[in-house]
């Protein structure tokens, strides 16, 4: 049984209960109460989610780029300015590289830890909790600690120097971009400074991937896992051939959640590095915040927010669509 693809986990039970009630089609006070229960929440969501999204969308097409609201329409001008902006182009590059490496690293570390924890070992709970506890922390706490650990003059570099490294890494103060070639106004490639942010965020989130993979592994029938190690000579190969394909639904969930998490990343970078030298660690979320609340360019800020929203929807809508459709069956 699939336990993890969360939206669908209870689908059978929900489908059953809906069958029971769909038979009665006539009006009942009970159903009326059910609807009335939902009215306040529905109203709140319609205003705070859909209304506000529409408002932000509208503002992104106006001239409101100072403290005083100016709702004169300006066409796509804000978007035009945005996509030609050095900072925003850097943001998109950083977001791309951050998201890809963040997801890969969390998946690899998470799967590896899950396989280790799944070995019927003693103290399983202790290990699982050690890998998962960073999830309970605020990104600000993570940012404050890792800012110190990866400060080039302190932290882990002291250990590297004690071990004899003559040129320890510059971490988030690095301005190098690898590989570096011109695209638009910016150098395209992975900014080395981003690696520091990646380390901190993988530390915080890989336990989450582990938890999901572990529940996925627990759902794989024991016989299949047995088969994987009866054939001991090729255990590794068997794992990839037989067990890993069973984890595909979990992997999809992991990727969707981590994509969301990486696109929302704000607090960690805000606390740990800020936009960085030459915007090497800047992200759209940070850009939106400073553009709106420090530069008072509300229309520009709205345009950034809408781009973030659209990027998110590219991943979320197919996922939601699939989950809800499966549930409906």
């Amino acid at each position: 049984m699939e336990k993890t693809p969360v939206l669908t986990s209870q689908s059978a039970a929900i489908a059953r209960s809906s069958v029971a009630h769909h038979k009665k089609r006539r009006f009942s006070w009970d159903k009326m109460w059910s609807f009335l229960t939902l009215v306040p929440s529905l109203a709140a969501v319609l205003i705070f989610v859909y209304g506000f999204l529409g408002w932000t969308g509208y503002v992104s097409f106006t001239k409101w780029n100072s403290i005083l609201p100016d709702y004169q329409l300006w066409g796509f001008k804000n978007y035009q300015i945005l996509f030609q902006d050095y900072r925003f182009q850097s943001d998109l590059r950083n977001l791309l590289f951050f998201t890809v490496f963040f997801i890969l690293a969390c998946m690899v570390v998470g799967l590896f830890l899950a396989v280790l924890v799944d070995q019927k070992i003693k103290g399983e709970n202790i290990f699982r909790n050690i890998f998962l506890f960073p999830m309970a922390l605020s990104f600000i706490v993570t940012g404050v600690v890792w800012q110190w650990l990866l400060n080039p003059k302190t932290g882990v570099n002291l250990i590297f120097e004690a071990l004899g490294a003559s040129h320890p890494p510059a971490w988030y103060t690095s301005t190098r971009i690898v590989p570096s070639f011109h695209v638009g106004q910016i150098q395209f490639g992975l900014p080395i400074a981003m690696i520091a942010v990646l380390i901190a965020s993988v530390w915080q989130m890989s336990g989450f991937a582990m938890a999901l993979y572990l529940s996925g592994l627990r759902a794989v029938p024991e016989e299949i896992k047995e088969a994987a190690h009866v054939d001991g000579a090729n255990g590794w190969k068997t794992f990839w051939r037989i067990v890993f394909p069973q984890l595909r639904p979990v992997t999809v969930t992991v990727v969707i959640i981590l994509v969301q998490s990486s696109m929302k990343t704000f607090d960690l970078v805000y606390a740990m590095t800020g936009p960085g030298n030459g915007y090497v660690t800047d992200l759209p979320s940070l850009d939106m915040f400073t553009t709106t609340f420090q530069a008072n360019q509300y229309a520009q800020g709205s345009a950034i927010a809408i781009v973030m929203f659209v990027l998110m929807m590219i991943f979320v809508i197919p996922y939601l669509w699939n989950s809800l459709r499966k549930e409906g069956q």
Binding site: H21, V45, T56, V59, S285
Partner: peptide, 30 residues
Amino acid sequence: ALSKWKFPGSNIVFPIILFGMFIPYQSILI
């Protein structure tokens, strides 16, 4: 309300509410 008393349209109400947790909050912040 959503799990035990399905009224006509309750299958649409759920996704409408659920959608709110997928948006980046920057897009409603202003």
